[in-house]
Computed example of a mutant assay.
Amino acid sequence: MDVGESLSLWRALEETSSKLTGFVKRACEVLSLDTNVDVLVSLEYIYENPEYQPKICGYYDPTKRLIVVSLPCLMRKDLKDGLAETLAHELIHHCQFTNGRLCSVHISTEEAPKIDRAMPYKNRPHEIEAYAKQKELANTLQGVEGFDDAVNYVKRLAMSEVRLPPISEAIRAQVNNPLLEETAKDIVNLAREDLLSVASEILDIRLCEIEDETARKRFEEQASSYLQKLKEEPVKAILEDIKRDVETFLKWDVEERKVKTLIIDPATEQPHCYLFLDNGIAIGFDLKGSYLPLLPLLLKTKDQTLSLKKLGELSFNLTIEEILQGIFRAGSYEFELKILPQEDMAKNLSNELCEDDTKPRIKKLMSMIFLLSYRSAA
């Protein structure tokens, strides 16, 4: 992991910590506790005591009024219940050090270290009370506004899910790309009064290539109908041509191609996944779901045997442990996994597009259209 990846990871941890802090402060207001408390999400595997691990996934620092929550520890149990119980336990400690009414044991930061040195963990009065009250308080916390949102945020960092749409849906979305209508308008504006004459010349050339008399007659009827439509609704007629050509292009040159790289960008208003194929084409997908990754990610196939069609059948459940290890497996396929600094997103997209200098310009153009102007199908 390089410096850029490390900083991106820290920002995601900081963002998740901020969300949990906001929830805990709201809970303190509901519980009449001191709201001067913060939460820090840690990637270290920590727990209050080895004898009880991993029952409580974190600890409370009374001098800093800080609750530290261990993400790896939480991932070994039910995330929702584990988070509620850990926060409940540490909030009872927060109450004990701030003279709250929720608890009956009150100790000072000077007294606590003496108790810890003098008594076994399970016999300490503040721990006995915390364990006795944590279950009921955990149930209360789950009813406080914002708890489900906090859990979702933690899950997006710990165990995110990526679901790609079927290739047919992706093709339909590309065919309905609003940019295509803008292209049709530009063609009409550029051609102006020459539009009909140019179209007529092209149709005449095609007609001359048809030898079968029946086919020629059918083509003449279709050409006449097309020219009339072009005269009445030029943009609509051109747009239908473009859509048909784009759909044909995608089905013939994309659907069965192999996947080379996936880039996941969660920072946009509508989170995106960009796919780069072995023929140089790139396509953008909207990502939908409750547990999309918080981190920008790059996944590169180790061997280019994964087809775009097969990709839609795979489940991408990305854990923070896999992200840290840099390896992800989906089915029988293995990917190199890397965190992307958000500020380098455009650079990485460009690098993937320009990796193959032999790529025809039209393919680069199509790639840029699909990546930068993509919108979901209605």
Rank of each mutant, 00 (worst) to 15 (best):
G4T: 06
S6P: 00
A12Q: 11
E14F: 07
T21W: 10
F23R: 10
N36K: 13
V37L: 04
L43E: 00
E44I: 01
Y45G: 05
I46F: 00
G58M: 03
D61Y: 08
D61E: 13
P62H: 09
K77L: 11
H89Q: 11
I92E: 06
C95F: 03
L102N: 04
S104D: 12
K114F: 08
D116T: 11
M119P: 01
E127Q: 10
E136W: 06
L141T: 11
Q142L: 10
E145T: 09
G146T: 06
F147K: 04
N152V: 02
V154M: 04
S160W: 05
E161F: 12
E161M: 09
I171P: 03
E182A: 15
E182N: 14
V188R: 07
A191M: 14
L195G: 04
L195E: 06
I202A: 13
L207E: 14
E211S: 13
L239A: 07
K243F: 11
L250M: 13
D253P: 00
E256C: 05
D265E: 11
T268H: 06
L277K: 04
A282Q: 03
I283L: 15
L298M: 13
L298Q: 15
L311G: 02
L311V: 05
G312T: 14
F316S: 09
I320F: 01
G331Q: 10
Y333T: 13
L337D: 08
I339D: 00
I362L: 13
K364T: 08
Y374V: 07
